[in-house]
Nucleic acid binder design. Structure first.
Lengths: 338, 338
DNA sequence: CTCTTTCATGCAATCGCTTGCATGATTAGT
DNA sequence: ACTAATCATGCAAGCGATTGCATGAAAGAG
């Protein structure tokens, strides 16, 4: 176990003061070029590594961004994180990531941890049952920037990055209606979450536009799990008048529903045309391939991280921006159209 | 923007010394219970939050674990991370996560960052093209525990957490042979990686056991991407004597290969029986469902994190353990057997 | 050749917390 | 009642890097 090398060691060795060493290492303009070279090369030679804590302690900054997501093991979330990590890493920031497991309680605990870790900023996609945002006020009080993505909180004081969920919901539904479907069922999640509420809005709007009365029995609020898909399929087969279209706001759930429907002898898309959401890898491999909404996860992650970092570096003020909307896209595949 | 509360503020307010406050907050046995209560409640009242940097700086410890994975957006990796996060969080550790994007260069950079961030320990799954492990010696020199999982480096000085890839490879292949298949093709990844080398070993062993000569033309080393799957399918259709079995060491690749084969009119499993690897969600939804090896990602993450943390807390010495092998399992589905 | 700038560097305080050692106050032991 | 042991707390020295201000030397001005 070697001893840790500090700027004092370098200073002593070269007969400079620690101050000069510190400045040289940070490329301070007041230091002669020769000196800088000398110091940096000696630092390398001695195996110096800067002590982030001492530095953070002194400058009151951490170069760390906190990320809170509902769950880590989802294809969408991992794309988002991949995007964030890339951007953050390039900008010299670290990411500390935690999952709320869809519970506010855990979300609050995580928020507190992030707060204590003194992250420079926070990126959040809220849990399934988050209602208020009090646990984030600590951040705003301290002026720590906070940015919501995907699952956002409808609140003017925070910047959000989302797709136009209403438009996506509209397009998904309109697509089915355009194909002549008239009884379109809609399976979605907790309507407190913007993403689901907005998609429902789009669904209703499309119905209205096609002159079809809204039937609330065709809308089901669920947890969008794979089990729910199976359950819904069973219900459908038992219904006296079956829906001829199905818009599920999650691909995994849509797929499990679709395959169950197929097993019971229904034909996709003839009997029921299905549209999912997210463009999860499964949507492409299922048979027939699932029509879905492409959700730009990676881009969302990149933009979220970039916005936050730009703000931190004073290049941009996210307070000024209220909402950033990314482009989403309907991808038509075999589950809705031959 | 409020001012930050420190233990000095609390001390002054209660007429104690900062030392006592510090001890009380850390539940030190030498402090009277009354005093502790008094101090903790005052801390809460004043909105105190401990300064991790000052603390880390002083104790030379970070309570942070670094994780380096090849890529974030894979179903397997996200399960692993989910497991790690859960365990780490419960034990009061933070995770800082970065991806090598399958490049040693980036892996080295990430390693350096982790080193500078002074993580207490490191969990690594190496990149596709990592050859040597010199970039990790800095850790061993400093006595920072290092633990490899999944993609490990065959080196005695490090602890590894893996599944028995040879056994899994054997079972996958033997399954196909047991079904009467005689020309089993094997699509795999870089043989420098233990996971692929071992699976190949298992493949060979099964062949030997069934008295089938090894034919190296039936083994292809690829990057296991979805494109490769398509490519391989094309090759197969062009082959004069087609394989009747296919063992692909990645579900996504297997699935894209399988669907392409189906498109060209071949029947699965009649013409070609397919076995994948990982039990990725896609394996269940594809038609026919893909026979695969269940890879316990979540468990692997949990065990990796737990082992590291136990080691850090002195409850266990990972130096003593060389390899931890998790149970994997062949899941037989329609792609190999009706 | 003297006086003012400019340049390169050093001094020393500071960030907030931890901890070995010292100390005074209780309590226990005989 | 007197000494020893125990307890609760305080003192002060760090941990390593940063930075406003000061300083001595070199360069430029007249």
């Amino acid at each position: 176990m070697e001893k840790e090398v500090t700027i004092y060691d370098i200073a002593k060795r070269l007969n400079y003061s620690p101050a000069t060493v510190s400045r040289a290492l940070n490329d301070h303009p007041a230091i002669k070029l020769d000196t800088k070279d000398l110091i940096t090369s000696m630092a390398r030679e001695m195996g110096y590594r800067s002590n982030t804590f001492a530095s953070n302690l002194r400058r009151q900054r951490t170069n760390t961004i906190g990320v809170i997501v509902p769950r880590l093991n989802s294809s969408f979330v991992s794309s988002v994180l991949a995007g964030m990590e890339k951007v953050a890493n390039e900008a010299g920031y670290n990411l500390i990531i935690s999952q709320s497991l869809e519970s506010v309680t855990k979300e609050k605990a995580n928020t507190q941890t992030m707060f204590n870790s003194r992250v420079d900023g926070l990126l959040v996609s809220v849990a399934y049952d988050t209602e208020d945002i009090e646990h984030f006020t600590a951040f705003t009080n301290k002026g720590i920037p906070l940015l919501f993505f995907d699952r956002v909180i409808g609140n003017d004081q925070f910047t959000s990055i989302v797709i136009d969920n209403a438009k996506a919901g509209y397009e998904a539904t309109a697509h089915l209606l355009k194909l002549g479907r008239r009884r379109v069922m809609h399976i979605t999640g907790n309507l407190k979450r913007n993403v689901y509420a907005d998609r429902l809005k789009g669904y209703k709007q499309a119905l209205a536009e096609y002159g079809i009365p809204f039937d609330e029995r065709l809308v089901q609020v669920t947890d969008l799990s794979q089990e729910v898909g199976v359950e819904v399929a069973r219900q459908i087969t038992r219904m006296p008048i079956r829906p001829d279209g199905l818009f599920v706001t999650n691909d995994l759930c849509a797929v499990s529903c679709m395959t169950t429907l197929k097993q019971t002898g229904l034909s996709i898309p003839d009997d029921v045309a299905v549209v999912g959401f997210n463009n999860d890898p499964v949507s492409q491999v299922v048979n027939p391939a699932l029509t879905t909404i492409h959700y730009p996860g990676r881009e969302m992650g990149e933009i979220a991280a970039k916005s936050l970092i730009n703000h931190l570096n004073g290049l941009m003020d996210i307070q000024a921006t209220n909402t950033i909307i990314l482009r989403s896209e309907l991808i038509i595949r075999g589950s809705s159209q031959k």
